[in-house]
Design a protein around this nucleic acid. Structure first.
Lengths: 159, 159
DNA sequence: CTTGACCCTGGACCATGGTCCAACCGGCAT
DNA sequence: ATGCCGGTTGGACCATGGTCCAGGGTCAAG
């Protein structure tokens, strides 16, 4: 079983050395064996783990969720349902974001369509909109307040 | 012209006092007048500015972009085109995100649909996918490398 | 023997948009 | 005069996912 040093693992996985050490600190990678000189020694299973993490990230999972998925994978009692639950939550999250984002895009598009460009900024409907729009907000605020929507800000799916 | 203190401005705008001071540090609000005791004194135009900023944020603009929009609004030579340009860039950005995000959602949905839940994790197709998928990535990497897509990470539209 | 490439550690720093803190001062009611 | 609310400052801290640095040690080649 070919062991490799951190730089080799990093290169093989297409990440930086620091990223490997970071994953180790975050508990995503086990503490590796060491040479007499203290160099970390990895094997194919470590590479596979890093690849797994990167794949999970590309599907919008956070490192924390990747950690959970790895834990589930390592379990011999867990059901696939647990993985499915995480995935379904991620999908719901993605859908909520998609809706908010496409609402924003629609609004921006409407405003852009109305803006003739060749006028002084004082006639810009986009700025006019931004300047005037405070009733809806109060409205929205009430809604939010009513739901007591706390702000520990959006995590997950796509930066 | 009723002057108000920071807490009153904050309450009127629906933000925290610290947020007001933060906006001032970031150059979004002018340095306000002060009382003899050093208290900040605001007026209706400051409230309007904070409202403008919040509106811009709701449309996905960053604080930096809000700053630019405010500067344009204050200019008497600028064309509405400048505002339109920022808006169009934001739309393009939103559309790119929408596409990436809906691709992810589709992928997750496909995987979720294939996952029967009531099997041991070792038979979970989601984990299998994450475990196996390393050819495509190399492929994607090449694409990215070719475009020299640098990573000063995604800013703008929606957290 | 020296050079260069690699590795180690601990800690600082990046962006974003704030939030919270201590330690202090001002102003009003009781 | 005492409490209490509100204001002031500078700075630390939150999450996220790393990146970079200084100040060393290691190891193979020339």
């Amino acid at each position: 079983m070919g062991n490799f040093k951190i730089g080799e693992l990093a290169a093989a996985a297409g990440v930086g050395r620091d990223t490997i050490r970071y994953y180790e600190r975050m508990g995503l990678l086990r503490e590796p064996a060491r040479t007499a000189a203290g160099y970390r020694l990895y094997d194919a299973t470590d590479l596979e783990r890093v690849n797994f993490i990167r794949s999970a990230q590309e599907l919008g999972f956070t490192l924390e969720q990747a950690r959970q998925l790895l834990a589930l994978r390592a379990s011999d009692t867990a059901h696939a349902q647990a993985v499915l639950d995480i995935t379904l939550a991620k999908i719901a999250d993605a859908e909520a974001r998609l809706e908010r984002l496409s609402d924003i895009r629609d609004m921006l598009r409407m405003l852009a369509d109305e803006c003739p460009g060749e006028v002084p900024v004082s006639d810009c409907p986009i700025l006019a909109f931004l300047t005037a729009r405070r009733k809806d907000q109060q409205h929205n605020k009430k809604h939010q307040a009513a739901q007591d929507e706390r702000s520990p800000r959006a995590k997950g799916v796509l930066s």
